[in-house]
């Protein structure tokens, strides 16, 4: 066979391929021992580069790590797997909000509105400018949310969530390709909140909300409770 991705293996080994190219190599590798051997050698080079940057971590790091895993010792499924699995469910498509409601967007006031349910509906209907994408709840919980992409300014979420349990926080994610980017946290109180995303959005991004350790984490671990595709 003539289509060995030999030219791409070095870039593959240092993570420099674009997704389609990487997928092509991934598909080829199981069928080709020569390319696997080549890649293993290039992987050693990549490891060497990493090794040349070796530094002693603070002594406390080891103990913290082991204390942490001993106390969790969970058998939950790997977090990203959970997230991607959830992503395979159908998500609602964008609902352009045609009703240019003349109501000023005043969530702060709405937060105190008669009921949370009303407040949520009003908040979403009150978005006078921009595109609203409903986020699909991924469990039968009470979470509701919508992504608002204003014609100018930062995208934000309108969320109605139960209060996060002690030591936990709700965290928003922008998932670009296979990469989740932390996009902000909220959560000590229940009810209606807005959360301005700390990440810009590009078409095709997925927005998710998960329950994480208080203070937020860099990589999602919780099951998403809300999901939507931009």
């Amino acid at each position: 066979m003539t289509d060995h991705p030999s030219e791409d293996l070095a870039a593959y080994a240092i993570g420099a391929l674009d997704r389609a190219e990487r997928a092509a190599v991934d598909a080829h590798l199981p069928t080709c021992a020569a390319c696997r051997a080549d890649l293993e050698a290039l992987g050693d080079v990549a490891w060497s580069l990493a090794e040349s940057a070796s530094l002693d971590p603070p002594a406390r790091t080891r103990g913290r790590l082991l204390d942490g895993v001993r106390s969790s010792r969970s058998r939950e499924e790997p977090p990203l797997v959970a997230l991607w699995r959830a992503l395979t469910r159908p998500v609602p498509i964008a609902i352009p909000v045609a009703l240019a409601v003349a109501v000023a967007f005043a969530l702060v006031g709405l937060r105190e509105a008669r009921t949370d349910a009303d407040a949520y509906a009003r908040a979403v209907a009150g978005v006078a400018d921009g595109r609203v994408v409903a986020l699909a709840p991924t469990s039968d919980g009470t979470a509701r949310g919508a992504l608002v992409v204003p014609s100018s300014g930062s995208p934000y979420l309108i969320l109605q969530l139960p209060a996060a349990p002690a030591g936990k926080t709700w965290e928003a994610w922008v998932i670009r390709g296979e990469r989740p980017l932390a996009a902000g946290i909220t959560g000590e109180r229940s009810g209606l909140v807005t959360l301005v995303l700390s990440q810009a959005l590009v078409p095709g991004d997925v927005v998710a909300v998960t329950l994480e350790e208080a203070g937020g984490v860099a990589v999602p671990r919780g099951q998403p409770v809300l999901l939507g595709k931009t």
């Binding site: 490891w47 990493a50 530094l55 002693d56 971590p57 790091t61």
Partner: peptide, 8 residues
Amino acid sequence: YGRVVFGV
């Protein structure tokens, strides 16, 4: 491997 990971 902790030193390598920390260095990265």
